[in-house]
Design a protein around this nucleic acid. Sequence first.
RNA 1: UGGGGCGUAGCCAAGUGGUAAGGCAACGGGUUUUGAUCCCGUGAUUCGCAGGUUCGAUCCCUGCCGCCCCAGCCA
Length: 562
Amino acid sequence: MSNDTIDTDNGPVRDFVRDQIHEDLANGAVDSVVTRFPPEPNGYLHIGHAKSICLNFGIASEFGGHCNLRFDDTNPAKEDQEFIDAIQADVKWLDVGWDGEVRYASENFEQLYDWAEHLIGKGKAYVDDLSAGEMRDYRGTLTEPGKNSPYRDRKVDENLDLFRRMRAGEFEDGERVLRAKIDMAAGNINLRDPVLYRIVSAPHPRTGDAWCIYPTYDFAHGQTDAIEGITHSLCTLEFEDHRPLYDWLIENLPVPAQPRQYEFSRLNMTHTILSKRLLTQLVEEGHVSGWDDPRMPTVSGLRRRGVPASAVRDFIGRLAISKSEGTVEAAMMEHCIRDPLNDRALRRMAVLRPLKMVIENYPDGQVEELEVTNNPRDETAGTRMVPFCREIWVERDDFMEDAPKKFFRLSPGREVRLRSAYFVTCTDVIKNGAGEVTELRCTYDPETRGGASPDGRKVKGTLHWVSAAHAIDAEVRLYSPLFQDENPDAAEDFLSTFNPDSLEVLTDCKLEPMLADVTDGQVVQFERLGYFCTDPDGTADMPVFNRTVGLRDSFAKAMARG
RNA sequence: UGGGGCGUAGCCAAGUGGUAAGGCAACGGGUUUUGAUCCCGUGAUUCGCAGGUUCGAUCCCUGCCGCCCCAGCCA
């Protein structure tokens, strides 16, 4: 399974699902564990799906069992091959032990059809001619029982004939459905004669035009679980009400196994949405560049942003599985992203908002190669040589003309350290006609080469820099939360809280030469700024970097606090 | 006024009769050539509320309150 297992000082992961499995194994209810991850291919996977994936594949691995990736492809009107492909790529990337085998609910259409006839034969299912609207009226309400359909007592032979003609394509979409005959007065509305089959004349990505009737989720899911030998069918809380129907079908059909369904709460996160419908809307209306826009909470978006798969797994592992609904703070995931990157990412220097610095007492035309540590957390990462000369770029934010005492950076008369280079003191500030600072004039102390002071004097600030003569031009994209509200779902219109500054494009960035060697998929730390990776939009002439996540910034936090 | 769930610190949560784990966040302090990292320290007289049982209840009982889901021929 995954390279980093989720294991804390408290021992192995424990939750009510795993407790149930231990119990089932102990009392012989099951002798092996088989789970499944059953996405409907009607959208891309998001971090909420990752929770289910980590749970299902994680359990399979922990208990020496197996987990199937199964597409719940029972509604061709909404499903598409694009999603089938994308979902597989995402599951593979998550690296949770998927063996590459793919299952489809549609593989079982013939068996499911036979079972439908079986139910009809037992007098437990009937063909209903009621229209969708009429059926709604007959269903009753949350507080009032429903009424039996006038077609409820059709004879077995008539039902069989009608059902076969449904399959043969003799009727229009919506004209007839097959319903289970359970109880129109049930408090649980799912038991009020639920629809088992409906007519859908749309080509299916897998079965083409072989069928014009399709089983509903309820009729397909549990039976497919049984066919695949699933022992523990894990789903989210909204299916709790469906469990009695799940069990009813398993009991009334000659299925080869008796799978059991367990429900856990779905993941919610602050400042984003995890609803497939709303995410689809963001994509289709062009509020984001696509499903893999780095701001999206999709697996492909996280991947493009540079988030390591191990960080996603670690994040999910810290969540714990429960039945209580809650919203996890985005900060929790940010921590999980920084954690592995802090250990592994190579340090580099990049200036995002450049300000020219001229070191007046540094020899014109001289270039020095200075040795810089690649990762202070990892000695084996070694060092690199970085060119330094008279004119360099520094960060605009690192200069302030009238700086408060607590500002440990550049300001007229103040001395700071240029990382692994020299101490410099700001001597003059050059401005343009508009009064904007365009250049800093400084002097350096040759004795401080490498950044250490032989006389022991201290400086509070250490700045990153890039040699102007050697800099690589680049575009850098900064991302912040997609939504300003903590819970956009609660807003009357979720788009009203869409963050207009969620994407900030910086086109005049200056990178140290080594940054030309960053490979796709590699994440590096831009010192003092955050973690960054290359974006496929980049070209040889103009590389593009995405900010995966910023570094913690207690100074900015203190400033904001006042 | 039907059915199904859930309520433990700002957030995620463990604990299920013996006197409240852990993580994230926050806030102090130390180290530091990243205001990063790292290290140390600080939180619930209390477990939605009110009664009851008990020597003892977050855990058992009763009643209330709050929140979520269900009336697709979606999943």
